[in-house]
Design a protein around this nucleic acid. Sequence first.
RNA 1: GUCCCCAUCGUCUAGCCUGGUUCAGGACAUCGCCCUUUCACGGCGACGGCGCCAGUUCAAAUCUGGCUGGGGACGCCA
Length: 436
Amino acid sequence: MKSSDQAIVRFAPSPTGYLHIGGARTCLFNWLYARHTKGKFILRIEDTDLARSKQEYLDEILESIKWLGMDWDEIYYQSKRFDLYRDYAQKLVDAGRAYRKDDAVFFKYDFANTNVEIDDLIRGKIVFNELPKEEEVIIKKDGTPTYNFSCCIDDALMEMSLVIRGEDHISNTPKQILMYKALGFSVPQFAHVPLIMSEEGGRMSKRYGATSIREYKEDGYLAEAIANYLLLLSWSPGGNREIITLAEAKDIFEIKKVNKTAAAFSMDKLNWMNSEYIKKKSPEEYLSLVEEYLKGKNFLPDNIDKEYAKKVFLLFKDRLSKLSDLFVRARFCFYDDYTYDEDTKEILQRNLSKEIKVLAEKFSALANFNHEEVEKEFRKTATDLGLKTKELVHPVRVALSGKKVGPSLFETMEVLGRERVVAMLKRLIDYWGANV
RNA sequence: GUCCCCAUCGUCUAGCCUGGUUCAGGACAUCGCCCUUUCACGGCGACGGCGCCAGUUCAAAUCUGGCUGGGGACGCCA
């Protein structure tokens, strides 16, 4: 037995789907609690449903857990423990607490023990007035155990000091408590964490955007940001703090501080947090993150100069919500087949062909095409032409990117290079020529 | 239908356990101003909340009850 302050907890995913937001947070809470108490964190794969469990899901779940920054001390597979569950079922049959029928085993609830109390660390005592049925299947006719049964046996045998799981399991708990008692096991403590709701308040579902951790990774969210954001749903480090790493959270995390209220998932806030984490990265870290992210994405043209690409990415670093924003925002730096966005029409209404032509000539004659020189020349030219700087900035930005918004214009020009800048300016002049 | 859980700004939350220090603090979003090369970033500011009704108390966001509202569970799925 471990000393009582060292927790033994588990996360018990079922490989019948990808690791989703809710599961990830339950996992996070378990992991944090185990690490906080210097206890043990067990992964238990609940793959008793042979038809629906898939290797691909298992791989993905494990991958996501690691990606988020967690690790585990032990891992078990329920599919390898079927004999064990059958043995315990047989014990119950022998004791007259269960019976066989149609190859299945039915557990008989002890109704003398109807008032089941749950000792819940988050919610206090929960008392149930009724038990829904008189009996429960514990071994299905195919010989596999049902959830409540295998869950009880494993939580007891693996000596869980605390069962941390979603609130949706509260109603399973009285059934399980009765089984613990029938089996002669001591009943663990429970901590039922609130559910994560969709932005609309209902259940999280694919209809309302990504639900799996994998999808967020694919979309260019950083593991630290996801973990941090998930932590903030139903838990707070206090002191008006929001940005916190797992390593820091581990020191102060208390399961009793998890609140009872279901929290709505906010994509806006996640985006904000992700951008914070991107900004905090050093240029080198950011660049390798982008490189890793772009693998297999087929975004960059084949023979693109790597140094050029890096400069482009750096241009956008502090203004991304997620790495995939690059696909839309930075595309103009790699391809020149873009068209001008619909919302730039207003800017292009005023025909500045003559002025842009002068600017292109000045740029062609410029000794050093770096952003300082470009800016100086740009401002001077605008003034000479009787324009405010910004009257020239807007259309030039559209010329170069097709967009109304973007990074610093002069730095962008330096990165793009003289040749490309001049060519794109001419393209805008042609556009005016064709559209007037 | 039965059982269970929950209830502070639009959203996430601090405060609630141990009632007065709170005409409730922070963050996201929104809006405004400043900076500026547009957006963004940054800075400043605004908007906005203790669901309702009783009760306890000198005093309630904080304690109690009811109501209302939201959520969950009722599979030989997990």
